[in-house]
Design a protein around this nucleic acid. Structure first.
Lengths: 249, 249
DNA sequence: ACATGCGATATTTTCGAAAGCAATACGTCT
DNA sequence: AGACGTATTGCTTTCGAAAATATCGCATGT
């Protein structure tokens, strides 16, 4: 089965769990989520276990465990005895996810503004800066964006938005925000990598305004800006989805 | 394996799935959730698979699938290679669940008030009435409350609160509300079945006021009343938890 | 006595195969 | 020819056992 460290020294009392061991079910979970979010599978596509088994080199059990978890995250749907499929996408679903995300993150942002200390502010400034750098780097050499660049951009973007709400004091709000981030990512990524319709949009500026209002502790304004930021994105995706009938489910 | 309907007629083209077939994983999920919510297992208790296998007469696979789903619902926690445990309870967790529930349900209620039609109003009136009847029935013969009565009360209570938000138009908000209902149920039930400290609380009246404000389409007032209703419950549970150090984790 | 390493046991995790359904293709009957 | 029932096929779901890991007890040495 696991053939990893068979002949290796037992390394004393340090257990694999303490070492950050990862079960195969967790591997399956991460890789499947990654592939679904990045549209490696078509929305609605049945996820045949035989296929997944080959693709990931895993067996039924860990795959099924992962699929069950992803089902609870709305990335996978399942019908009684007919297996799993990639959750379909639709404009309605996108807006439901977006508006729910706004509800959650605006509340979390307001609470963060109440609770945040110096470390919180520092993390916001720092993650904003990293994001900004990456954006400029990619603007400079547009046209030839490597997948590493796109991945880095996604990371910085996620880290910035996480930093804003990190001090809300609610594990649930943070987890929900992360989950909704992942859900909406499915809609954002195709637009991001596809042609950017030279939109009259200055995203770095939007981020800066959110940061400024946040650091100035202007709760309501910051929340309004954050909501507008997300709605604007969804509107652009909506028109790009209905414009060219590309990814409309 | 499944020995259910082996020799039975195939009943034409009607498939099991159309009949509402249920996989064993779903059975495991429902029964485990039921038992965790009703504190059949102690919070924090390890859920040994051998035990569950015996208790439910199921095998590893469906049990593990159910546990993975429950983990995503925060009813079960898991450590790398150390199996599953019942999620611990604490006053902090209860308040996080309560306040998140308030955020979700108040928003859903406001949207329902915007969207609700005659059927919506009818369902609210009807479920309120059913709940009220059950409460009075149980008040009449207090002391000797059967577990059926308690179960019926829980059902009516859930149905009423569901009816309020049913027309919010967001699958996500409804599902989150259901999930948080289940989470908070773990805290409510022990207090409910235990001694009721003859509190100066008129719950039917609180419900009626929420209903009245809702049907009169007074959004903000209805949301305020709903939030106060949930907070009051959590406050009573908190004092009962810290008073007698019973269920404090 | 205390820490450390080793062995035995309990438990989780994973696998491969068997069993059970669903969907389809086929044949039979009217 | 069309409808109905029946095998066939492919997939999901479930099982029981094997492998990997954690945990506990014990001995050994300092």
């Amino acid at each position: 089965m696991r053939t990893g460290n068979v002949g290796q020294p037992k390394s004393g009392t340090i257990s694999a769990a303490q070492n950050g061991a990862e079960t195969l079910a967790e591997v399956a979970y991460r890789r499947l989520r990654e592939d679904i979010v990045h549209n490696v599978f078509t929305p609605g596509q049945p996820l045949r276990l035989e296929l997944l088994k080959q693709r990931y080199g895993l067996s039924f059990s860990p795959l099924r465990e992962a699929l069950n978890r992803l089902q609870m995250e709305r990335l996978v749907v399942t019908a009684a005895l007919r297996g799993f499929s990639v959750a379909p996408v639709s404009i309605e679903e996108m807006w439901d996810a977006t508006e729910t995300r706004i509800l959650i993150e605006c509340e979390a942002l307001k609470r963060s503004i109440r609770n945040g200390d110096d470390d919180w502010e520092a993390a916001i400034v720092s993650t904003f800066h990293a994001l900004d750098l990456q954006v400029r780097r990619m603007e400079r050499r547009a046209g030839e964006l490597s997948s590493d660049d796109v991945a880095a951009l996604e990371s910085r973007h996620k880290e910035f938005h996480h930093a804003l709400i990190a001090y809300c004091g609610s594990r649930r709000l943070i987890d929900l925000a992360n989950q909704l981030y992942t859900e909406t990512q499915r809609y954002r990524l195709p637009t991001l990598t596809g042609e950017n319709p030279a939109t009259s949009r200055d995203i770095p500026r939007e981020h800066r305004e959110i940061m400024d209002a946040t650091l100035a502790r202007r709760s309501d304004e910051a929340a309004e800006l954050l909501a507008a930021h997300y709605r604007k994105t969804s509107e652009l995706i909506e028109s790009s989805m209905s414009g060219d009938g590309a990814a409309v489910a």
